[in-house]
Design a protein around this nucleic acid. Sequence first.
DNA 1: ATTTCGTGTCGTATGTTTACGACATATAGA
DNA 2: TCTATATGTCGTAAACATACGACACGAAAT
Lengths: 109, 109
Amino acid sequence: MISNKSEIFPAEQQQAAVYAKALSHPARIAILRYLAETKVCITGDITDAIPLGRTTVLQHLQVLKESELIRGDIDGKKVCYCINSDQYDEMKQLFNELFENINPINNCC
Amino acid sequence: MISNKSEIFPAEQQQAAVYAKALSHPARIAILRYLAETKVCITGDITDAIPLGRTTVLQHLQVLKESELIRGDIDGKKVCYCINSDQYDEMKQLFNELFENINPINNCC
DNA sequence: ATTTCGTGTCGTATGTTTACGACATATAGA
DNA sequence: TCTATATGTCGTAAACATACGACACGAAAT
């Protein structure tokens, strides 16, 4: 299967899925909110704000980094995580487009 | 860990994560788009519209059903899948709130 | 120079997701 | 009734996610 039909999925859907995946864990949403709230770009003691172990938080940060929704700039001993607003805006726009394109009519059967 | 800190995550974040997870695979986005486009509530030969095996598509439909974004009503031999617009609107609103709450300032370090 | 603190990496256990084939059931039509 | 079609369930393999402890590294402070 998987390749004898219409190939794979449109890039726009793939990208939307990537962003959705980034948001698909409460910890990651919490991290984004935390980064948005703490105006000062705060180090990895995000851990203290999130009810999870340090390694796990780091892992979630990694996932967010992969989706490019956040950046982590080294600053001496500490690391400065923050939301990548360009990418973040792109995500918002993508979702808005998606939501516009998917307009259900409640005529189910 | 996981319970000696601030307990778990707020319900609103949990629910956002549930919806995000539902959207976190291109096939599921494709299914939603397909259901929105084919105004008539069409049976499970959604399979023909999606480049995946029947069982896999069914599985994705199950996931979407669990998030309550879609419904599947039996109609004789066929089954009528369609978007649950109430839930869908709720999701849109939740995401909008989330996006409003997360307002990044580009002052990274 | 040594210690400490903040980071990150590795390994690992457990669970979930994704993908699919094979089997089961049930409705509608020949 | 028998058959075809549409659906759903089961089992399973491979990959990925989640959670965390233990270790390593490097900058800063002592």
